[in-house]
């Protein structure tokens, strides 16, 4: 739909809320491609479902190299949520879904806190692609992450759309991935 006005809607909300901590700051333009070789950026792979065969296929992107892994992974997730991959690939999240926070825990665990837009309707496939698209992306780019807990609006949720259990930490599901670089 209208990506720009929607981003503006969110930016407006963030502005009105008086907090820069939301994802209103997410880049409006698609993330740069592999061609972007600037020294301070790290190449990453974002995994999105493909119209071609329904598997999670790679999309080349880049994130800013940060001082801490936590900051870098936050950048990766923001890129994941805001990118419109185009072609056969589809971003399974509603356009305005924002990352509220990302935490690194011990023993290869991470916690992703999304905002309420992540709840926007869909079926099992939508839910599977949202959860595993995001988790497989994190774990592929940062293999030290072994399982991820998903929160919405800072709270533990039983499921996102009524199917997949979010009360536990979820490991990646490599069988959903296509051929990766």
């Amino acid at each position: 739909m209208h990506r720009l006005p929607l981003l503006s809607f969110f930016a407006l909300l963030a502005l009105l809320a008086g907090c820069g901590g939301g994802d209103g700051t997410a880049p409006a333009a698609p993330a740069p491609s592999l061609a972007d070789n600037s020294a301070n950026r790290k190449q990453v792979v974002l995994l999105y479902p493909s119209e071609k065969d329904g598997i999670l296929a790679p999309f080349a992107s880049a994130v800013e190299i940060s001082e801490t892994p936590q900051q870098e992974m936050t950048g990766l997730l923001r890129a994941y949520l805001s990118t419109v991959p185009g072609g056969n690939l589809v971003n399974p999240f509603p356009e305005r879904t924002a990352l509220r926070a990302f935490y690194l825990e011990e023993n290869g665990r991470a916690v992703v806190d999304l905002d309420q837009w992540a709840f926007e309707g869909g079926g099992t496939d939508t839910e599977t692609y949202r959860i595993y698209g995001m988790i497989n992306t994190i774990c592929y780019n940062y293999p030290e992450i072994r399982s991820v807990k998903v929160l919405v609006d800072g709270q533990e949720r039983e499921t996102l759309l009524g199917h997949i259990d979010l009360l536990n930490y979820i490991p990646p599901e490599p069988s959903l991935n296509g051929k990766l670089p």
């Binding site: 479902p49 493909s50 119209e51 329904g54 589809v90 971003n91 399974p92 309707g121 869909g122 079926g123 099992t124 496939d125 939508t126 692609y129 199917h163």
Partner: peptide, 16 residues
């Protein structure tokens, strides 16, 4: 359940 997907092309039955 009945499924819904962000992919337009997908159809058919699935089980888990």
């Amino acid at each position: 359940h009945f499924n819904s997907s962000p992919l337009k092309s997908v159809r058919g039955s699935e089980s888990y």
